[in-house]
């Protein structure tokens, strides 16, 4: 085990936990549901990716690298999808926007508001 890899893993773990901390503060500080959601998806995804990269660099094995690549791929695939689903559900039950939000484009289009629930055949 080199000294250099130890320093690099320490830097990666610190950066990852720092971005997770930033996303946790962002939940408290940002004014709106939607802006909080966007902060959480971006920062926590990068935090998890950095911590897994640190684990791969520390063990330096092929087996650990394959598992780490799988985890990274599926987290990067699923976390924006779940953010999209949560935002769509929030639009559906009409969670209010921040009062400075520019809503002119959204109010003119009534396709999103009038969603009819069709019975399944």
């Amino acid at each position: 085990m080199n000294n250099l890899t130890l320093i690099l893993t320490a830097i990666l773990v610190l950066l990852g936990s720092f971005t997770m901390l930033i996303s946790a503060i962002g939940i408290l500080r940002l004014p709106d549901f939607y802006s909080r959601l966007s902060a959480v998806t971006k920062n926590s995804t990068l935090g998890v990716l950095l911590i897994i990269m640190a684990a791969v660099l520390y063990f330096n094995n092929i087996e650990v690298m394959l598992k780490g690549l799988g985890i990274m791929f599926f987290i990067a695939l699923t976390s924006p999808t779940s953010a999209y689903i949560i935002a769509k559900a929030a639009i559906h039950i009409k969670v209010p926007f921040w009062n400075k939000t520019d809503l002119t484009d959204f109010d003119n289009s009534d396709t999103e508001e009038e969603e009819e629930i069709k019975p399944r055949k």
Binding site: T19, I22, I25, G26, R29, L30, P31, D32, Y34, S35, A39, K42, N43, L46, F97, W98, K100, T101, D102, L103, D105, F106
Partner: peptide, 20 residues
Amino acid sequence: SNIRLTKEIITPKINLHPAV
């Protein structure tokens, strides 16, 4: 995007221009 959001959260004044 991560660098920009980090700056936005750490600095005390929030100036966002949200829109849909």
